[in-house]
Design a binder for these strands. Structure first.
Lengths: 337, 337
DNA sequence: AAAAGTTTTGGGAACGTTCCCAAAAATTAT
DNA sequence: ATAATTTTTGGGAACGTTCCCAAAACTTTT
């Protein structure tokens, strides 16, 4: 591996000049010597030692991505989006997984300090904010969260999508619409309430009477979907449509409906939230509120670079979701009350 | 951020002593001073500057992971396995995606040099070996490959699984067994042949006559599976079981069978290869040869650390696959003709 | 109690950059 | 032609470690 001094010797200039040319703007270097240096560098196949550079400049052009689990497609998409953007701006990405275990955060935060990363992209978790405050580094939070913090955050506008889904069902004749908002929804604080308040506003707008049985609380998993199917199968006045808490619930619901002989979408229309890969493949394929996962990653990367460069950024970015219409919603002749 | 000198001053020792204590073995440091140093470091909240350390030692404790796409669950699992292992040994992982584009490799290989990573984990691609030879860094290849190279490789023993699947079908009464080995299979060289030779050996062992119509060649995608279903539906003497080239084909096949009114597994038993997340969720859930994706990542990480440390390693690691029995294979009374 | 040996400690150099400042060279003004 | 100005170049210091070597502080031996 050649150093800047080798290049300097070959080009017959000083290391300072080589540095000026090779580290970017080459301000104050004549075109002639610039060409000489570039030729010499190329001839030797010089590649810069980022470590030395970083040590001097205090910039590593590296971002630490802290996510729960890269194996979860949601986070993989976010990571991919972030990496694509960062790469374009010559940043690298170090990835770690927490499995939601809070003790891991300390470790990774120290890693960030030790490696001297220029910024941290991290999923927003309730237990975290206090720790983050002690870190003197640019930080951008990933995903929606319901707690306040002074860090910029990039998430998606799920509530808008939720409303869109309600309206879509209404347009298709549904008035008996069930919604899922589980206990886990309340953990963060406000999401649950907001979802319900949107639901109530929707009902009022369309003069539909609230039926408390149409509000379901199940776990955010396929198991929860299965439970949901059982619940619905036992109702004497079941909803004709349901907006699941996420796609996992929806998929579990679809599968269990087959067992319970509930026809989807003939007996029950279903809308999910997320748009995970399975949703387009399962039969019938799932109509769902697609979260802009990759965009979230990209935007977060964009924001953190801005923060690093000292540019002003907003505190909250809510990226638009997108209702993907597939096969789990049926147009019916709604018996309008 | 405090440096080693701040710690030294507080502990009233020299920086050398601090370095000795804080960089590991603290050989030749008395217990008393060691305690002093550790106390001082803790008091200041000292965290080591890895950049400076790496510059001096020429070790970064960082591995570069080059994969096609983290969004593909297979690679996400591999990445996760690698990261988990590396983390335990205090290595970090930088991740990049190539999308199979060969021009990206040059870029990433230079990145590796510039950042001074200690090793590279990279998916084995045909076009790549020549480039890799120019790199003076520990390299471990990920996944099966059909070309020779002097780098250690970690893959899975798919052929053994293929054979196991054949025997499993036979045990369940199947003798009319279709297999998929597409054109893409031949690209690398030998896999295709081996798959077929195993198939032939199997047939001979059980005195089953070879039917060339039971050998299918379709694309390795859901589209390919759809095509396969159409092909089979038109046969006058169709197979009773089929081993798809991978799970994607199998899933496409399952879905299209529904359309074509072929009952799975009653009319057609199906076995996939890979065990992707969808396979356990689709209905009927797919019996498949599960690849040890995470193990591959872990093993590769283990191997590269060994290489870095100068320990001897084998050239080829083939991790065992595992036949996951789910719902797409039916026991029949085979007409043992 | 001095010599020899061993353990523990400290100071300087080095890793490869970038940055600062001054010197040299080239250009323009007088 | 010389002075003043601007452009271009070079040398040294610094970033925070680790490593080498020598000095200092202890132990043991005679």
């Amino acid at each position: 591996m050649y150093s800047i001094l080798d290049v300097a010797k070959l080009a017959k200039v000083s290391k300072s000049t080589v540095s000026r040319v090779l580290s970017g703007d080459s301000y104050g270097v004549s075109d002639k010597t610039k060409a000489k240096v570039e030729k010499a560098a190329k001839e030797l196949g010089y590649v810069k030692n980022s470590l030395a550079s970083s040590l001097r400049t205090n910039k590593t052009k590296t971002i630490l991505l802290i996510i729960p689990d890269i194996t979860n497609n949601f986070w993989a998409e976010v990571a991919r989006g972030a990496q694509d953007f960062l790469e374009k701006h010559d940043y690298s990405l170090i990835m770690v997984n927490t499995d939601w275990k809070s003790d891991k955060y300390n470790k990774y935060l120290e890693l960030a300090l030790s490696k001297g990363v220029d910024g941290i992209l991290i999923n927003s978790s309730t237990s975290l904010t206090s720790k983050l405050n002690n870190i003197d580094l640019p930080i951008v939070l990933l995903g929606n969260a319901y707690l306040e913090s002074h860090f910029p955050r990039v998430g998606s506008n799920t509530l808008e999508g939720f409303n869109e889904a309600l309206e879509f069902l209404y347009k298709n004749g549904h008035t008996k619409i069930g919604v899922v908002a589980s206990h886990t929804d309340t953990v963060g604080g406000k999401s649950h309430q907001n979802k319900l308040s949107i639901y109530h506003t929707f009902l009022e707008n369309h003069s539909i009477r609230f039926n408390k049985n149409y509000y379901f609380s199940v776990g955010y998993s396929m198991e929860g979907g299965k439970e949901l199917a059982t619940l619905i199968s036992k109702m004497e006045n079941p909803p004709t449509a349901i907006i699941a808490g996420n796609d996992l619930i929806a998929v579990g619901l679809i599968n269990e409906c087959r067992e319970l002989n509930i026809k989807v979408p003939d007996d029950l229309s279903i809308i999910g939230i997320d748009d995970i890969p399975i949703s387009s493949i399962i039969h019938p394929s799932l109509t769902t509120i697609a979260k802009p996962k990759r965009d979230v990653g990209e935007k977060a990367a964009e924001i953190i670079i801005k923060v690093i460069e000292g540019q002003p950024v907003n505190k909250n970015y809510k990226l638009p979701v997108n209702l993907v219409i597939r096969d789990t919603v049926k147009k019916i002749n709604g018996d309008l009350k």
